[in-house]
Structure formats: C-alpha cells, structure tokens
Design a protein around this nucleic acid. Structure first.
Length: 538
RNA sequence: GCCGCGUUCGUCUAAGGGUUAGGACACCACCCUUUCACGGUGGUGAUACGGGUUCGAAUCCCGUACGCGGUACCA
C-alpha cells in the first residue's frame, strides 16, 4: 500500500513540474534567454552581489543564453573610481565572464547607462504625453520641508504620493500656462510617474509566486532626474527592453519598487514583453543585513576581492586574498539559498550550470556562516590537484619571502599538506619550514629531555642516513627504528626531537615524509645543527 | 507608522497531507595517529505561537508574534 501512495505522489509531482516549467518557460522558448547583471559602480562587490551574478550566469548558460553586464552609473555623485574595473576582475576571478558588456562590447552597446543618457528622455516624455507621468518642479529644499511638515507619528516618512502631490509644485497642481512658462525659463524639473489610484498590480515572481501591491500606497517615483539622467526605475525598464532581457534576477530589496517597474513596462512596451522577475533573498550577517562592518567586526571577508575605498584609503578584505579558491567561493555562494534537493553540497561550476534551478531558490534570507565557508574551501583545497594549486601557493610564498627553488619539490609539498589547509594562506604555516630552516629551539628544549645518549643517537643517525641505499620515507623510518633498537632507546622518545629538528615545532605531516622531501643534505644538516644547539644549551 | 517579503536544530537546509522530522557546518565523545592536523564512528540539538480544515498538518487557511527589506532627483 505505501508503494501506491508513493506512486501517486510521484505522478502528481511530475505533472506539477511539467506544468510549472511550461508556465515559466513557454514564452522564452520563442525568445532567447538573455539575463543581465546590472551593478552600480560604487564600491567592492559583496557576497550578495556575486551571488546575483552567479544565479544570472548559471541560468543563462543552462539555457544556452546570453549573460550581459550593464553598468548602472546614472548617479554621478556616487560614482567611484576603480569600482567598474573591480567588477570585471571579480567576474574574471570567478570564471563568469559576460557575453556582452562595456569591455566586451556587443550588439546593444553602449552598456554603460551614462553613455546611453540621451535615449531615456523620449520614453519619459512619452509617458508625460499619455498622462501617465508629469513634470514636477519641487526643489530639494521644498521636498525636505514637505517631508518635515507632513510628518506625523503615524506617518514618519511621508511619500510623494497621491495625497501629497496635490500640495506640491507640479503639472498636476499648476495650469498648463504656468508649466510652459517654467519650462521656457529652464526651471529644473523631474518627471514623476503618476501612480493610479486603487489599482492592484501583480506579477509572478519565479521564486515567490504571485506578488501584488495596491497602487494607492506606492509613491510617484522620479523617472527622469533634473540633470537629465534617468533613475533606476526608468533605466532598468528601457534597457531591459532594448537589450531584450528575458529574465531579470535581482536582490529582494527591489521588490517594493517592482510595481513601479511593472507599470512602466505596461505603459511603454506592454506587460507581455516584460521579463520574468526573480527577487533573490538577502544574505544576512550576524545581526541582520550583511555589511562591511560585520566583516570587520567578526573577522571575515564580505567582498569577493580586496577593495580599497579611494577617498579614505580604507581597505576591505576579500575572499580571494583571505585564501579562498574561486571554485570554493562560487560553490559556497551557490549553496547560500539554493540546493538541488539532494544531499550533495560540493558542486563544480559545470554541475551547477547543469543542476541549478531558480525554482529551488529559497524565499527566506540566509545568514552567512564563515565556518561553513571555510569548510567549503577546505573541501576544494583537498580535491584540487597540486599542480592547479601551485601558482597560488607560489604567489603566497613569494609575498612572505619564502624562498622556493624547486617546483617539483613544491608540488610534492603541496600534495603532502593540502589536506590540512582550510585556506590557501594556511600553506604558509603548514609548509614554510620546508624552505626555511628552523632555529632557536629554546622553548622546546626542556621538554625534550636532551641528554648524551640522545645526542650520540643522532650523531649515528646522521651517518646512517648518509649511507642509506634509497632515500625515501620507508627507508628512513626503517633506519631510524633499527638504530633506536640497537641503542636500546624507544623510537617514541626520539621522534619528537627529530620533528623539532626538522620542523621547529610540534606539528606537521609524518616526520619521515618530511625528511624524504627535504633530502639527505638538508635533513642531516638540520639534525646536526640542532644537535649542537641542544648540546650547548644543556 | 505604512507597504511588502519571510519564519524547520546555534547556522545552512531536506520534507509537495501519513518519515523514529533527514543531511551538512559548528559543538561534544570515542577511534585512528609515537607530533599537529586530516579522517572515521557516534551523540546533543528544530517545525515561532494560537486557532481552524482534515481520520491525519512542518506541509493548506486565518490571526498573532518576531525578523528582514522598502518608504531618496541611491542603486
């Protein structure tokens, strides 16, 4: 009987799934899948931003579509030097290069909104002509005053809405003659959308299902600013249309302004042509929305790569510099709010492209857990071949002035210690003793119970090592134990001193493996110099 | 305040009306290891609350609480 229940359920589920897919993707069967990541260049890219890129990228690649980068730099006041270049580098590091963008070019260039400035006004004017938008002449000061004047306990932040617009200086409250006069005098103005009254705007979000809003409580957003630049609300609709975007994924913080965008779509191009929206859940920090501050406070990165704020010189640490592999970074980001329904957690980029499904993205925000991020990175360091790790590791050693002469030796070292590293920077601690001879053993000396017997053992051991027929860990270990036996010493008592001699501390991989990699010259040299230091110390 | 979106172990999550509510991170214990790790085995630990609907609810509905987001000529 349970079988029957299961079977029915399965059938129901598959039907549902087909219906679901048809629902979401029927229109795009005719339309090529085109998605965009549209950041504004105001600083470093944080986890949430990169995850938005990732979901866009995965969706595009999965459907054989295009991934477009569009720079939304309509606010000159917030433009930050270097931020755009940072975005390119981050995408490159993560292996998510756009098919079209300011740098790559493409059929819909330019891809920087500041360079598209001249094309937005006509759309705003079209709305004005249709009575769906209007001129407003209120100055910044007047807006501030109005907000103060109409502020009450119940309404602490009055909006430019249906009630307030009738009290302001705009084309709805002035005669056409006055408006004309103001325009002729080159009075600065903005164009605001005129939100209709008591209408319900709803649309289907790919993640949340149907979402609806009452237009009475949405304000008259500015569409075209007084400097002639569009706001996000106009630019996103116009450019998504012009660039033939089929699906638009963005952070959840955009959900409240979605009705504005739906309306602009309806007025300008028709709702049928509108991309399918998906509002991604936020990534949270320890106390709410993840911020740079959280990173600084709790000691983990929030940006993809190091970012220096030009104005202040403040440096914000990135995952790359902290020692994350891009494969791991992408993997952990993908899992922050999505899973494929199985218990698999480690995914390659290719697997993600294959298995990612926007329907399985969560609705709720996810709190970022750095411990789990470390686990992902550890898993990736363990399963990445040493030769693929080499460049990164060499660079890290170089930055710490650790002299690496022999690449082959370095590969062996990486293979030997990679299981112990959670971060690429852990290779410093785990492997630098191979390249830098330890010294200054004072702290360990007392614990070693160094004496003449041990001293003479190591003297003989040096001789033994020099005449070893084959230099590998098994032979070294064999010689060590034989000699200990014939000296009537327990190998256990001697192994720690040997480790201290070779490593300089009570850590590291098996000591005979270390000796093998060090080679006979270096091994015997370290034993001999340490022995003499111990002898003189006692 | 108003509007919107959420809510399963501490954290990330599985579950599509019937499961001893599963997995992962972290934590604890044991094992492995003549170092430190890695690793292995096991354990602690959750359906926010209150009402419905139903033979049966984490799952569907309503309410409450809580959290988050928005409420700019920022994006």
């Amino acid at each position: 009987m349970p079988n029957k229940v299961k079977l029915q359920r399965f059938q129901w589920r598959s039907r549902e799934r087909v219906a679901h897919q048809k629902y979401y993707f029927c229109s795009c069967m005719e339309k090529r899948v085109r998605v965009r990541f549209a950041p504004s260049p105001t600083g470093g890219l944080h986890l949430g931003g990169v995850r938005t890129v990732l979901y866009n990228y995965l969706f595009a690649k999965q459907h054989g579509g295009d991934f477009i980068l569009r720079i939304e730099d309509t606010d000159q006041g917030r433009y930050v030097q270097g931020a755009e270049e940072y975005i390119y580098q981050t995408l490159a590091w993560c292996g998510m290069e756009p098919d079209e963008g300011p740098k790559t070019g493409g059929p819909f260039a330019p891809y920087r909104q500041s360079e598209r400035k001249s094309m937005y006004r006509a759309y705003a004017e079209q709305l004005v002509a249709a009575g769906q938008a209007y001129y407003a002449f209120d100055t910044t000061k007047e807006l501030e005053d109005a907000r103060l004047q109409y502020r009450t306990a119940e309404n602490p932040s009055p909006q430019y809405d249906q009630a307030l617009r009738l009290k302001m200086r705009n084309a709805l409250t002035m005669t056409p003659e006055v408006v004309q006069e103001l325009l002729q005098q080159n009075t600065p103005y903005v164009i605001r959308i005129k939100m209709p009254q008591g209408e319900t705007i709803s649309f289907t979000d790919m993640i949340r299902g149907e979402v609806s809003f009452d237009t009475s409580v949405v304000d008259d957003k500015v569409l075209l600013k007084s400097d002639g630049m569009p706001t996000y609300h106009l630019a996103v609709v116009v450019d998504d249309h012009l660039m033939q975007i089929s699906h638009a994924f963005r952070g959840e913080e955009w959900l409240p302004s979605a009705p504005v965008h739906v309306l602009v779509w309806r007025y300008l191009f028709g709702e049928a042509a509108m991309p399918q929206w998906a509002h991604l859940p936020l990534i949270l920090g320890p106390n709410g929305k993840l911020s740079k501050r959280d990173g600084a406070e709790y000691g983990f990165p929030v940006f993809a790569m190091n970012w220096m704020t030009p104005a202040t010189g403040e440096l914000t640490e990135g995952f790359r510099e902290r020692g994350f592999l891009p494969t791991a970074f992408v993997n952990l980001l993908a899992m922050l709010g999505w899973n494929d329904g199985t218990e698999q957690e480690i995914f390659t980029a290719a697997e993600l492209v294959q298995k990612f499904d926007i329907k399985n993205v969560h609705k709720g925000g996810a709190k970022f857990d750095f411990e789990k991020a470390l686990w992902f990175n550890h898993e990736w360091i363990k399963r990445t071949d040493a030769d693929l790790l080499l460049d990164e590791v060499l660079q890290i050693f170089g930055s710490k002035d650790i002299p690496v002469r022999d690449t082959d030796q370095c590969l062996k070292i990486i293979a030997l210690v990679q299981d112990r590293c959670h971060l690429l920077t852990d290779f410093i601690e785990q492997a630098s003793f191979f390249f830098v001879r330890p010294g200054g053993y004072d702290a360990d000396l007392a614990k070693l119970k160094w004496n003449d017997t041990k001293a003479s053992f190591f003297t003989s051991f040096i001789a033994e090592l020099k005449s070893l027929e084959e230099w590998n860990s098994a032979f070294i270990e064999h010689a060590f134990k034989n000699l200990a036996g014939s000296c009537n010493l327990k190998p256990g008592e001697l192994q720690l001193p040997l480790r201290i001699m070779l490593v300089g501390g009570k850590y590291g991989p098996p000591v005979f493996d270390i000796a093998e990699i060090l080679g006979v010259e270096e091994t015997t040299a370290r034993i001999s110099s340490a022995s003499s230091e111990f002898n003189s110390g006692s």
